[in-house]
Design a protein around this nucleic acid. Structure first.
Lengths: 346, 346
DNA sequence: CTGAAAGCGCTTACAG
DNA sequence: CTGAAAGCGCTTACAG
């Protein structure tokens, strides 16, 4: 037996024949928007036939006719990055409720792949886009906007104020992190950041600087460094560098949990202990941080909600209910675990 | 400006006009399968026009006509379960190369949701299915088979030998785990398993029993227990029960890393230490197990490859190149970390 | 080798 | 309120 595809087997035509009406009438009866224009007896008959024959609309045919695919493209760096599964799940659950389906595309953090991915999504005729891959300056996104495509940014955002976004409040989380360290008695606090070409990297270092000033601590440039990419390996490299430049530092605040994990390695390699000698703080509070050795103190935000919010914003846009470009910032909180402790006594 | 959707803006018709040929000719020229039947000069002209106008095929229109969507449904319990991101990525990368796109649907481990998810996939006209949600007895899957739909099972499989599958070799991994413990000197080895209605649960307990016999160790029924669902909480519950029933046990082999994590909790609650008092072994080797406290000894297999293999099998099937029902078992290896050690001296 | 026609399964202006 | 027609953008037998 040849394979056949999983598809609706009964057409509108067949329901129409069964109910003794014209296909157009069936179409009207089945669509909530137009249902009102069909006589209630006819309606009942059509509905009965549809149910009896187990009619299901062929989305492809409908899409071709309506020029709407009920499909949304989702651009993310990589689903294997533990930040994204919850965001994606939040997006998909929300889209699902509105009968939309998402088409996921991965860029692996390479800006040059975005265009290729977008081309594929274009061929599929997505109605809108949720992008977690925004660069700070992102001409591709601006071109999309130009084209009139509905797009919402999630997690990161570009500088264009015309594109809606849902991001985590860096300022709040960072300030809480620094306050926490200050209260423990830390003064020589270092910062291991994410690349500055991306809004999260930019926002978090700015927040770190502002936070340090707010608490009245010294901002030494030798205690600030950025990774080239967000990974454990890069975190370790930067961690080593910071520890070498200032062996007296007692805490490292990072822009990401993976970077924090790398700092764990750097601290250990230096023959020092976290948290006894050096405290480390992460950002994102990814799954299982509480299981790490030591359990990681990290800035938390609700990733599922981030995805859900972005999807809801896009849906509103697609429904024509929203034309502004809201910039939602999700609340961040510091989750204190065991990677932070008072500095060693001098 | 109203939103417009990201879709191809130039049609076959426009390319035809530009090249001075009939749309059918453009279609033939652009499709590798039929390209041979067009004159090389015409071909060149059409290709030039297509490139110049940046033509992209409208997949929706093509799908309606060909009755193939170039789309595959992927049924998984939950992308937030750390086992799945790599599998999904393996699937999507492989499908992508063949110009297929995947539509992901979540069941949250609830069999009753499968039908609803399948209905939605049906409306979208998926060409085939990759399911990570197989029950041991799975009438839904058999019905799909009956219908002639191409389906491949991944990670789990049903008892039907008619459906292809890609799973992890439980026997090999389990034997390696038990040998490792036996070599360390363990004798009272307990087992914390996964639900038996699912093939992974079934296969792993069978493998555990066979492994224990192979090594000549006693299989005490009070040292064997299954979770109701695969989660840290259930792992803790079963772990507690095992420790209570046999306080002398010195090792717990589990069917899953999350269960193993729960056993960590149970061991700790009992005032004992892993690995000094009780060794614990996981299964799946999910991401970041090496960062746990203690780093988890676990049975490893290549999850990305599992997904990639399943997708490749489905593609072959869809291409009509394969009509059997291969059951691929991926190699498993034991990754020894710090959650296993010799048993305490009596 | 190329064109003209039909049709995939819908929806929606347009008549009546 | 319902029907008949057109058409979304393709592909593919069928002629020539």
């Amino acid at each position: 037996m040849p394979t056949s595809g999983l598809m609706p087997r009964v057409t509108l035509r067949e329901v129409a024949d069964h109910a003794g009406v014209h296909p157009a009438t069936v179409s009207r009866a089945l669509n909530p928007e137009t249902q009102a224009m069909v006589n209630s007896e006819t309606l009942a008959r059509v509905l009965a036939s549809a149910r009896e024959l187990k009619y299901q609309t062929n989305t492809i045919a409908r899409s071709l006719r309506t020029q709407r695919s009920l499909t949304v493209g989702v651009l993310i760096p990589d689903i294997m990055n533990p930040l994204f599964p919850s965001i994606v799940r939040g997006i998909e659950d929300t889209l699902d409720k509105a009968d939309y389906t998402s088409l996921i595309a991965y860029t692996d953090g390479r800006a040059d792949r975005v265009t290729a991915r977008l081309d594929r999504l274009r061929q599929r005729g997505v109605d809108g886009l949720i992008v977690a891959t925004a660069q700070l300056r992102d001409p591709t996104l601006e071109a999309l906007l130009e084209e009139g495509v509905a797009v919402v940014q999630v997690n990161r955002r570009s500088t264009s104020r015309l594109i809606p976004s849902v991001t985590a409040d860096a300022a709040g989380g960072m300030l809480a992190a620094i306050r926490h360290l200050a209260e423990l008695g830390h003064e020589r606090i270092a910062y291991a950041g994410a690349p500055l070409r991306v809004s999260t990297g930019r926002a978090r270092i700015d927040a770190f600087r502002r936070g340090m000033r707010a608490v009245g601590l010294e901002l030494a440039s030798e205690r600030i460094e950025q990774t080239e990419s967000v990974s454990v390996g890069e975190g370790a490299r930067v961690g080593r560098e910071l520890l070498e430049r200032d062996p007296q530092l007692t805490a490292i605040v990072t822009a990401n949990d993976l970077i924090a994990l790398g700092c764990y390695d750097a601290v250990r390699e230096a023959g020092r202990d976290c948290p006894a000698d050096v405290s480390v703080i992460g950002f994102n509070d990814m799954p299982f941080t509480d299981r790490f050795d030591p359990p990681l103190t990290s800035v938390h935000f609700d990733q599922y909600e981030m995805g859900a919010t972005a999807a809801a914003m896009l849906l509103r846009r697609l429904a024509g209910e929203e034309s502004g470009a809201p910039r939602v910032e999700l609340e961040t909180t510091l989750v204190v675990r065991a990677s932070t402790a008072p500095p060693p006594r001098a």
